[in-house]
Simulated assay, not measured.
Amino acid sequence: MDPVESPDLARLHDDLQAEYSQLVDIVNGFDQRLLTIKGWGVTLSLAGLGLGFQQNHFGLFLVAAASGVSFWLLEAFTKMHQIHYYPRMRDIEFIAYELFAVRMQSGPASSPLIDWGWETAGPRIRRGDSKGDPNVPEPWPKRRLGRSIQPWLFAHVMFPHLVAIVMGTVLFVLGLSGVFGPI
């Protein structure tokens, strides 16, 4: 029996597709949580800054800064949990390519390639050298040399929380130094 026609291989293909679909749903669910966290963080930090001025109490500026730190860390930890699903997505893409790739005139074609497509998209969009063949996925690296993933340093995670932290801290220090008058 041809391995391509093997019932076990067909079942594996279906199982991989089902698992990949579940992973995509999980990652999308994290995106919704991350937006909620960011929304609450911005709302509470801005409310603390606004109330500090309205109530003429500079201690609320410190509350706004602390809120910014809390939501920044919460968003970073949530992002780290989301990132933990990416290696398995790449594993499935690589396995699917190795077992089920179809040879076309233009080169191999395989599906799914969502994670690998993201990996190779940046250089392709900027018309630079690609990190690899967009149609031939590479396995997730066993170890990323010299680089670890630090989600709290991602620009889209730290902003606008960092702005609230800086503003709250600066305004608190100015309040302590008497710039806003006695409180």
Rank of each mutant, 00 (worst) to 15 (best):
S148D: 11
G52Y: 03
R127G: 15
P134E: 01
K38R: 12
A96P: 13
Q105S: 15
G29T: 06
V179M: 05
M167I: 02
F71S: 01
V24Y: 01
N56T: 11
L9E: 13
S111V: 14
L35A: 14
S21W: 11
T78S: 12
V173K: 00
S106T: 10
S110E: 09
R11T: 03
S21I: 04
T78G: 05
E119D: 14
Q150V: 14
N135G: 00
L162Q: 09
Q150G: 12
D2V: 08
F159W: 09
F61E: 03
V179K: 10
A47V: 06
A96I: 07
F172D: 00
V163D: 00
Q17C: 08
G107C: 07
D8F: 10
P87M: 07
F154Y: 15
L145I: 09
P151R: 07
N135C: 01
V27R: 07
V157A: 09
Q82A: 06
I83L: 12
V4C: 14
V163N: 02
Q55S: 07
V102Y: 05
F154W: 15
P112M: 06
L9T: 13
W152L: 13
V166E: 08
P87E: 01
P141E: 04
L174V: 06
L176Y: 09
G181K: 08
G168E: 03
G68M: 06
F180K: 03
S6W: 04
R126W: 14
P123H: 04
M167S: 07
D91S: 13
A66K: 12
I149L: 13
G59P: 03
